[in-house]
Structures are given as structure tokens and as C-alpha cells.
Amino acid sequence: MGATASQLGKDLLSEYQELTFLTKQEILLAHKRFTELLTREERDLNLNTRVPMARILTLPELKSNPFRKRICYVFSTSEQKDGSLTFEDFLDLLSAFSDSATLEIKSHYAFRIFDFDDDGTLDRGDLEKLVNCLTGETDDTQLTPDEMRQLINNILEESDIDKDGTVNLSEFQHVISRSPDFVSSFKIVL
């Protein structure tokens, strides 16, 4: 990258505008916030500098989100699978969560966030983890095992169209496509 880390080049900026759903102001704001996460030495390096997950999660927009770690893992391109993000990964994240991203891309990433074991389908284990994330994981907020079983059976009955015991991407997108609230709730704005 020809650009210095502190300032995005004009070409790069327009390239990002082309490749993400973000506007120019949003990209610049994202860059500013991302640079704040870097230490002094890292700021001199290029755009491929990775910020470890722990530091990403100090962002107030992600801090209290129960899916924060999954979000980092899904958008990270790191080979160690440590959930660290480069600036471009960060832009990908913001683009998928932006106001104008399509339902298709949002549902795709939502599916991957919910797919806790990364096997390409949502099975019973994934659904249980997902429900626990939604209700909070302490004992008094968790559903009882009985309720959980009933709930997961109901979910599979509703959305597992081909009855193979798991929810795959197209079945997931089918559910999502019938709920327009999703686009407004799957949103993180800096």
C-alpha cells in the first residue's frame, strides 16, 4: 500500500467505496476509530497490521454484544484463527452491518456468526449455544433443559424444511427473508 497508515489515499478510498456499502465519511470515521486501537509503533506500519481480538472488543459498539467473539472470528482473515482484524477486515465487518447492506449479505454473515462450530449448518448444538447467547449464560437466565428441548424442536419444525435435523443456509435465509425487521436490527454503526 502506498498510503501512510494515518491517512488513506484517494485511490484507496474510492476503491473501498466501490467494494463496501460504506460512504466516504463512514470509511474515514472507521479509519480514525481503527487507528485509535493501534499502538504507537503499529501506526507506522501498513494497512495489513492486525489488531488482536481483545483490543477490537474494547470498542463500545462491540463490547457488550454476546456475539462479539463470533463476529471477530467470522470477519478475521488471520491464519491463526485468533479473531484478529486488519483494517480491511474491519471495513468488511462494518460494511456487512451497515445501513444499506443487502438482506442477502447480512443473512449470510448472520448465518456464519450463528454457526459456532463452522461446519456450514446450524445443528442442535449451534442452536443451543445461540439461545444461550440470546438469554444470557448465567444459570438464572438460562432456559431449563426441558424448555430448551421444546424450543429447539419447535425451531427445527418451523425452519428445517428438508427435515435433515439441521438448518442450512438457504433455510436460514428463507426465515430471514420473511422478517424485514432483520435489516434494521442487524446493524452496527460507529
Partner: peptide, 29 residues
Amino acid sequence: GNYSKIVFIGWDYGCLGDQATKLKQKNLH
């Protein structure tokens, strides 16, 4: 698709702060 909707779509990623997150979780529960 009521239950699927609550579980798949119920979370509002715009939630800010621990307080709001806890309330939202309680709400969903």
C-alpha cells in the same frame, strides 16, 4: 416461524452498553 424468528432475528446489534444488553437478554428470555 415464530420461534425461529425470535431466535434468528431477535438480537438487536445496535444495543449499546451492558445495561441495555442485559435488559435485551432478559426480554428475550
